[in-house]
Write a protein that binds this DNA or RNA. Structure first.
Length: 1160
RNA sequence: GCCCGGGUGGUGGAAUUGGUAGACACGCAGGACUUAAAAUCCUGUGGCCCUUAAAGGCUGUACGGGUUCAAUUCCCGUCCCGGGUACCA
């Protein structure tokens, strides 16, 4: 029996889900004679809310492609898995006490149950879960490969660290300077092979860390004190935390980062080879933010009277105000770590140990002849006492703020390299024999060479520097405007600020720096365009015309981009212009009448004026001329900058991959492959452990790692952080190729065979993070020789979001007025007023005609209601009234609404509150308000696919989701059209069945007309699938079904090919019909029918005959009729004669097979 | 602000290199079947005008211009919506 009824569908679909599983039809092998095709979905994060109708949109599309490619004869890889590490599970654990592993497993099961019902052809034997140790073993392994790599800029590819060591041993770093140009070792950017050999292990490791593609560094993070954790950028909204709205500050923390900036150019170039939408590429290009320009050095004139050194170093304390003690460390401190260190130093100064206090008092009072500083930062360390002139460090052991011995040792080593001599005293020595201690210090001071003689490489301090030695380097994309530079602006954090500020400006500058520091991220964001700044008192010299240019500092110049300094050209740059106007800086016009004096003009097309040797040259040509000159003079060079920053890779979280490293002396060492995976230790404490450490630091036994095993360095401490979710997602597409391999992340043969993902379908919200990281990991693995391709995804399709279509009801404010002394009624009805009337009342003037009419309508319905209440005894007298002003819109469950009309009975049953609801109707209906919002439980607009499948079956759901509109477009979910799709499937079914629902197939030869209908479909569906235009192929199916229905065609020769075409879209019904047609094997084994153009050939064509471009008639001509003949016949026709009124036309255009146009 | 993408009936949306605007579906209206309803089937359906009817006319793809025999499609300007980005020199 076979009626395609809603009951029967369930049986059919369940039957086939069972059969497919039983027959294992979706199993994919890595060996095949067929060509391969790899269709991939972005795997979901298994949230607790389960699947809603938005999720399957992309999955259905990819499933159609996969099934289509399969019937086209490809060996198709179409896997599914779960991005199972992540924050929500951890938050859920904190709130509900359920372990992330448990809730994640539950959620995955629920997702799989829901996905299973939709009939996807996933090979579940290849499923991956990123939280599975057998999976993240390889995530960790790949991380270690990245850690063990550096980017060889000469070859533009990653190489192993040992190759770099070899280079250092033979030639130092002359040819491979530090990737971060601001980094120096003992003040120098370059070290020789001999230098390298003289460095000890710790220094070598510190240097290598500067090159590694996965590296540890102090980086800015979003620190939320209230939550005790670091937040990702997308967890910070307008300067406060996404959860809780707590303030977030930038803080420096030692974190893992991936040196993705080294790949900026390749990531950019790679975009040209892959088939992503232009908008997606634009987003990535924007993110990478390449700008081409030049670096230019400007010498600074002395800001101070000649011969006078910079800001006081104590000796000159009487001359200029001394910097606060806390600021001094800045000079010797590692700049990057300074903000972080200075707080520690300050804290230490405020909480000295007893011994420190004793010693400090003595050092201050005894005339040592040298300035001693307390809690001074050097590099990344803080020394107890320092004499900078003599490069002497005095340490008192056992200070309670010093964490451990190893740390002290590491510091000593570092200080030695930096040219400091360290002497060390124990607490006891200080306490018991202070005299001896002082003597020793004096001795050491006398012995120590002063810095100038020592020959130690260190950056010259301001005291030593002659005036005018300073160089200010800027980055500009417009070197052509060099003669239009009216001022320079440097970032407030710029290292030169302290050095160049003139005594006269000192106070102003310090005031400004305080202001900048006081400004939170929220302030800055709120007032981005606010113009602030301060003159330093220093001047730069324009290298081409020796002009003196004032140097300012301002917030609008960012320390982190370029050199943190700009040359300002107010006639050509909007911000520079505003700044100049605000501070009344005279503006030089170098672009003639392109500049109108009222706003900047950033043109590149102007002819330069006031520009010395550039006069008369078009700007865009001058760019290169200046760059050339700069290079000749050795004061600059062409340079490229990128906006993109390195990717922060540490999270203070539990539910993620632990970093497979062990720290010894603060240096991370890779674990060995045999020791992987480093499993996430069981824990129920997910709270951050404070100090910016991750929750894993709570597990003392785990974090302090002391194995008995071989290499000694493996005794140490583990990393308390975990990797971000991006880690697992950065390579999962490779694991699907060979998911159970225990020897490698995937077998090279499998990697070669499946190669790139042919089509990748997912949301555009992953445009930057996920897609860039996946591309990066692929490139690194490619460079290291593990895979042969260096772009993971050949083609990307972004499905649009499905938004929810919310419905509202409007509750009126209800009052009861007594007529006499009736007792108040027992019931309190909620009265809901229909949308149209609410709109009228709200939009029209009170007591206007419209308003009064509406009130009248409402009152008449209230009157009926009141009468009914009285009749039924609910009301003894008096009456209910409503306010005509206040209506509160309430979200109503979309399932209680048909289109916009509320099902009032269902609504009353929905919630007890509404049991006594009354409705003020318009034209007998209650019309709801509507809004398109994201799907959310709290808006009652979530549509669950289970519900649709239950009502209509999976095939209808699949086709309907495709029918909604173009895949890439966002669209609101609305079930109103779903009946049409269901009816279509039933029509297909009925083609093979008679009126009494019995199978009836004709074996007769098809007619030419039937074949034409079929082959139109074959061609259209194939084209549409290739174009990802599924909505149009669904309508092609509908047209085909309608036409075959009216032809009453039930011929096997037509229906068999038809259902093969249909099978990717509606696999269950197709498989059922296929079986009914007598096939024993799955329709997946069938072949897509061959298209034959012969059947579509027409002999003649009905030409639209237009007159002056407007169609007035139609005439049938043979397609091979010559133009002239057509023209003659058209001109002779009655209708055309009517329009021409016998006159000759100006022109007649005949487009064969298209149109005829007569121009009068 | 800047960079993308988009704007077509009551609704979702079709429309090859410029060549019959509104395919397909929903909704709506009318009809058939039915005691009735549901379901199903049939017909009509951008707006306006004219006509008893047949037919016909005008107008119409956000708005204003332009190119062309012909524009939803190409060009210029304006408005609105969605996405990305945010002082990136």
């Amino acid at each position: 029996m076979g009626e395609y009824s809603k009951e029967e569908i369930k049986n059919i679909e369940e039957k086939w889900r069972r059969e497919w599983q039983k027959r294992d039809v979706y199993k994919v092998l890595n060996e095949s004679t067929k060509p391969k095709y790899y269709v991939l979905d972005m795997f979901p994060y298994p949230s607790g809310a389960g699947l809603h109708v938005g999720h399957p949109l992309g999955y259905i599309a990819s499933d159609i492609v996969a099934r289509f490619k399969r019937v086209k004869g490809f060996n198709v890889l179409h896997p599914m898995g779960f991005d199972a590490f992540g924050l929500p599970a951890e938050q859920y654990a904190l709130e509900h006490g359920i372990h992330p592993a448990v809730s994640t497993a539950d959620n995955i099961n629920n997702f799989k149950r829901q996905l299973g019902k939709i009939g996807f052809c996933y090979d579940w034997s290849r499923e991956v879960q990123t939280c599975d140790p057998t999976y993240y073993k390889w995530t960790q392994w790949i991380f270690l490969q990245i850690f063990d790599s550096w980017f060889n800029r000469k070859k533009e590819k990653a190489e192993r660290i040992f190759e770099l060591v070899k280079i250092f041993e033979s030639e130092g770093n002359t040819n491979h300077t530090f990737p971060n140009s601001k980094y120096t070792i003992s003040g120098k950017e370059i070290f020789s092979a001999n230098d390298w050999k003289s460095f000890d292990e710790k220094i070598k490791q510190a240097i290598l860390m500067q090159y590694r593609l996965a590296y540890l560094a102090y980086t800015d993070v979003n620190w939320c004190e209230a939550l005790g954790t670091v937040l990702a950028n997308d967890e910070v909204i307008n300067g406060v935390s996404y959860r809780g709205g707590f303030p977030v500050v930038k803080k420096q923390m030692r974190q893992w980062s991936l040196r993705i900036t080294e790949y900026a150019e390749r990531l950019l170039k790679g975009l040209d080879e892959i088939d992503f939408s232009e908008s997606m590429k634009d987003i990535q290009r924007n993110w990478i933010g390449k700008s081409v320009g030049a670096r230019i050095d400007f010498h600074l004139t002395p800001a101070l009277p000649a011969g006078r050194p910079g800001p006081s170093r104590g000796e000159n304390a009487s001359l200029t105000p001394s910097p606060s003690p806390g600021e001094r460390g800045r000079e010797t401190s590692d700049k990057k770590f300074w903000p972080y260190l200075k707080d520690f130093a300050k804290e230490n100064r405020q909480n000295p140990t007893e011994e420190e206090t004793i010693l400090w008092e003595e050092l201050r009072n005894s005339k040592l002849g040298h300035k001693i500083r307390r809690q001074h930062t050097i590099g990344v360390f803080i020394a107890d006492f320092v004499c900078l002139d003599k490069r002497l460090v005095i340490e008192v052991d056992g200070g309670y703020h010093i964490a451990n011995k190893e740390f002290d040792q590491a510091r000593t080593e570092f200080l030695r390299i930096e040219g400091f001599h360290v002497i060390r005293f124990t607490n006891e020595e200080v306490k018991n024999d202070l005299k001896k201690v002082l003597h020793k210090i004096k001795e050491s001071l006398d012995k120590s060479p002063s810095i100038k003689e020592s020959g130690v490489n260190s950056s010259p301090s301001p005291t030593e520097m002659g005036p005018g030695d300073e160089v200010l380097t800027v980055f500009t994309t417009r070197p052509d405007t060099i003669f239009g530079v009216d001022f320079m602006v440097i970032a407030p954090e710029h290292e030169l600020v302290k050095k160049i500020t003139s005594p006269r400006q000192k106070e102003e500058i310090e005031k400004y720096l305080k202001y900048v520091e006081s400004r939170s991220e929220i302030d800055r964001m709120a007032e981005v365009k606010k113009i602030t700044g301060c003159f330093t008192g220093a001047y730069a010299i324009n290298p081409f015309n020796e002009r003196k240019i004032p140097v300012w500092i301002s917030e609008y110049v960012l320390a982190g981009y370029g050199t943190g300094a700009i040359m300002a050209v107010p006639c050509g740059d909007e911000r520079d212009y505003k700044f100049a106007k605000h501070f009344s800086i005279p503006i030089t016009n170098i672009i003639g009448n392109h500049y109108n004096g009222e706003e900047a003009n950033p043109t590149k097309e102007a002819i330069l004026e006031n520009s010395d040797f550039l006069n008369g040259i078009v700007m865009h040509e001058a760019i290169d001329i200046v760059a050339q000159k700069l290079e000749e003079k050795g004061i600059g060079n062409r340079q490229v900058n990128y906006k993109m920053r390195d990717a922060g890779w540490s999270r203070q979280r539990y539910w993620g991959e632990p970093f497979p490293v062990v720290y010894k002396d603060d240096v991370p060492y890779a674990m060995e492959e045999s020791e992987l995976p480093l499993e996430l230790p069981p824990s129920n404490n997910f709270k951050p452990s404070g100090n910016g450490e991750g929750p894993l630091a709570n597990l003392k036994d785990w974090i302090n790692f002391a194995p008995d095993a071989k290499p000694a360095y493996r005794t140490g401490r583990r990393d308390s952080n975990t990797m971000p979710t991006h880690a697992g997602a950065a390579w999962y597409f490779l694991r699907y190729m060979d998911p159970h391999n225990t020897k490698a992340f995937a077998d090279p043969k499998a990697l070669d065979y499946w190669n790139q993902v042919d089509v990748y379908i997912g949301g555009s919200e992953h445009a930057v993070a996920h897609l860039l990281y996946a591309r990066l990991w692929t490139k690194v693995l490619h460079d290291l020789g593990y895979i042969k391709f260096d772009e993971p995804f050949k083609k990307l399709i972004n499905q649009g979001k499905i938004t929810g279509d919310s419905r509202f009801v409007y509750r009126a404010f209800v009052t009861w007025t007594a007529w006499g002394d009736e007792t108040p009624p027992k019931i309190h009805p909620s009265i809901f007023v229909s949308k149209g009337m609410v709109d009228k009342l709200e939009s029209s003037e009170k007591f206007s005609e419209d308003w009064s009419n509406t009130v009248g309508v409402i009152n008449s319905q209230l009157k009926v209601m009141n009468e009914n209440y009285r009749k039924s005894g609910k009301l003894t007298g008096g009456e209910y009234q409503v306010s005509f002003e206040d209506f509160s819109p309430l979200h109503v469950d979309v399932s209680k609404v048909d289109g916009l009309e509320l099902d009032t009975e269902a609504f009353k049953k929905w919630k007890p509150d509404f049991a006594n609801a009354e409705f003020i109707l318009e034209e007998g209906k209650y019309i709801c308000g509507s809004a398109i919002e994201k799907m959310s439980k709290s808006y009652f607009n979530v549509v669950n696919p289970d519900q649709i499948i239950n009502d209509y079956g999976a095939d209808t759901l699949r086709m309907y989701e495709m029918f909604l509109g173009p895949l890439e477009q966002s669209k609101p979910w609305n079930t109103s059209g779903i009946d049409g799709v269901f009816k279509f499937l039933r029509r297909i079914w009925n083609l093979a069945h008679d009126a009494t629902s019995n199978l009836k197939i004709s074996e007769a030869e098809p007619t030419r007309e039937e074949l034409k209908v079929l082959h139109n479909l074959i061609r259209k569906v194939e084209q549409d699938i290739n174009n990802f235009s599924f909505n149009t192929s669904v309508s092609a199916f509908m047209i085909c079904a309608n036409e075959l229905s009216s032809l009453k065609c039930n011929k096997r020769a037509i229906l068999e090919p038809l259902i093969i075409c249909l099978s990717p879209f509606a696999p269950h019904i197709a498989e059922e019909l296929w079986e009914k047609l007598g096939h024993k094997t799955s329709i997946l084994e069938a072949s897509y029918p061959a298209f034959n153009e012969e059947y579509l050939k027409e002999n003649d064509f009905e030409y639209p005959i237009s007159i002056n471009g407007k169609v007035r008639a139609k005439m049938n001509f043979a397609l091979d009729m010559p133009k002239d003949d057509i023209e003659k016949l058209v001109m002779a026709s009655e209708i055309v004669m009517k329009w021409t009124e016998g006159k000759a036309p100006k022109k007649v255009i005949v487009v064969p097979g298209r149109i005829v146009n007569v121009v009068l």
